[in-house]
Nucleic acid binder design. Structure first.
Lengths: 343, 343
DNA sequence: GTCTAGGCCGAAAGCCTTTTCGGTATCGTA
DNA sequence: TACGATACCGAAAAGGCTTTCGGCCTAGAC
């Protein structure tokens, strides 16, 4: 049984405005929309009436005409996570600057829920979709949809789709170059879950730079584990045991770096004097509260979200943007790295 | 100049389905919506056609009829903050269980931007609004709007509005009772910015319990400062200097508690053996990584968001829910508190 | 065989706005 | 005075869907 909504009186419609202003609906419409075929005095009357009735045009009726809803769908998989949110913010921001609104859905990594939300969004005639992944590994394509789709953070496996991701290889290069600039020559690589492509990419970028410059990677193989402080503590113990002369540790995440810092401090090593440490993700609450504060790589997720929205708008306007796009991360140097101080 | 959208062929319409099935539009509609006046065989034909054409009904047209959009607006003021997000999640979750979608806007604490987004949402004929504040202090009402509004986290100053908030006084009571249960009798209260009502409420709740039980509050006046680790470190120093026999410190936030823990550890005090410490907010990344892990108060923000949505749906259905509603927080005991061990 | 009831189906109105196009009034000019 | 031009305004259609209501047909009853 459908319940009656509480609205005492319906929202004012254009017809009401027209009647109050003593003009036709058509004229009222033209007046409010700034069309030129209305006498100034008439226009004023219409505006006055609209004001008095608190008229606001029914977007649903407008969109029925234009065929566009002025709405985009944003499907996230990680609403509680710290990666989706900045991306979401960037997209919302970019959309708000135009006149489009964002319909938000959280599918929580569940493909079924994703399909369900997709149906709802398509029924609402969104003009386009942004799909934000929970982790940067590629995900299966949604296939051909009646509206353009941009995959953000997690790219689509199908190269014909439009995707935008952070450049983890470049992130790896950034910290490695920074380490070298700080005069470090024996560097350990400690990273997280080897199931994550990001772990490998960041290592690959760092390795490329270190090898090119002839710096020593100790141990020669990077240490994979989990994305946790715990693993950071453990791994740091392994490294300083086997290679007491290590002078830099590049970590795959800020969490790992926090653990590494703990072990180094407890083993009496000074950071950055003895060993420089870098994190990844620039998770401020961790990086800034670390002792010393942690040099990290910022993936510029908000920028990523913004660009995702821009790509989507371009696609909606018919300017095609297929393929992979990349946001270059930036280094945020803090106290955990610095020129080597002998002693 | 309006650009042409890329859509090669328009979405299938009900008319297309009807034509393919060899029935009228009316019959097609009735068939798809499960109305009873359609022969089973006809219905099957219609469904088949709809399937083939990937028909999905145009929600904008449907809503034009019903006058309801199946959409609620969610205006947040703190999209990057950790308080809005869980609330948002809860609301999205509650909405998704029905068949309503969430339009998300971030006003960033700017009243002007709020009005702008409000207009956009009302134009889109949202069925209702949830306004999520950035901090728990009361905010000015939006006044009478054509749709129901629920204020979440930050209540409206107008008691005729519907608001839902966390019970900070109860949160204060919770930790105080826990301290007493752990046998603590000389307890310090360290909290944040006195501009925040939450700071006072939490203190008031704790004080009420401590006074009732005759426990000693040292110093007799709570220490107000900022919501930072820095202040936590400073305040803890003050407390143990003036009252070396303190055996419990109730902190107004997890950040403050982290700072307090640092100072206690560095001064040689054992937690919880010598001094028990509690935080507030249950910000897991802080509470769980603290040493020892931090007992805290969880505000159940996700539940708050869920209930906000429920209240809104009730109001939309005409069941009025004016006034203030409250979500009771819960204690999350961890290692930083425990029975006093003489030592 | 005729009449009626009931089961199916379709025409059309309505939701709210925009836009086109035709109509009216006004004005200047010949 | 009359004509064309110009400036305003309004009727109506369109957009996709739901719902009402009347019409048709079939089957069963007399």
């Amino acid at each position: 049984m459908p319940r009656k909504p509480e609205q005492k009186r319906k929202q004012a419609t254009l017809a009401d405005v027209a009647q109050m202003a003593g003009v036709s609906i058509a004229t009222a419409s033209k007046a409010l929309n700034g069309r030129s075929q209305v006498k100034a005095e008439t226009r004023a009357r219409v505006f006055e009436a609209a004001e008095k009735l608190k008229f606001s045009p029914n977007a649903m009726a407008q969109n029925l005409l234009t065929g566009r809803s002025g709405t985009i769908g944003l499907v996230t998989h990680d609403l509680d996570g710290r990666f989706s949110i900045p991306t979401l913010m960037g997209a919302e921001d970019a959309a708000g600057h135009g006149r489009t609104s964002v319909l938000l859905c959280d599918a929580r990594g569940d493909a079924l829920r994703e399909r369900y939300h997709l149906q709802a969004l398509l029924g609402r005639r969104v003009d386009g979709l942004i799909v934000v992944g929970a982790r940067p590994d590629p995900r299966s394509s949604l296939g051909t949809l009646p509206v353009p789709v941009v995959y953000a953070y997690a790219p689509s496996t199908d190269p014909r789709d439009t995707s935008i991701v952070t450049d983890n290889v470049a992130g790896g290069r950034l910290v490695a170059e920074h380490m070298l600039a700080c005069g470090r020559r024996r560097i350990a690589l400690v990273t997280g879950d080897p199931e994550y492509g990001a772990a490998h990419d960041r290592v690959a970028g760092a390795r490329e730079v270190l090898d090119r410059d002839g710096a020593e990677v100790v141990p020669s193989e990077p240490l994979y584990g989990t994305w946790s402080e715990e693993w950071g503590r453990t791994a740091a113990g392994l490294v300083i045991n086997q290679h007491p002369d290590v002078d830099g540790i590049i970590c795959g995440s800020d969490q790992i770096a926090r653990g590494v810092l703990d072990t180094l401090r407890e083993s009496g090593r000074k950071v950055p004097d003895d060993v420089a440490v870098t994190g990844h993700d620039n998770w401020e609450i961790l990086a800034v509260n670390a002792r010393p504060q942690l040099t990290s790589v910022d993936m510029r997720l908000e920028e990523l979200g913004r660009q995702a929205a821009e790509l989507l708008f371009a696609a909606i306007d018919g300017r095609t943007t297929k393929g992979g796009h990349v946001v270059t991360p930036r280094l945020v140097p803090r106290a955990s790295t610095g020129p080597r101080v002998s002693g």
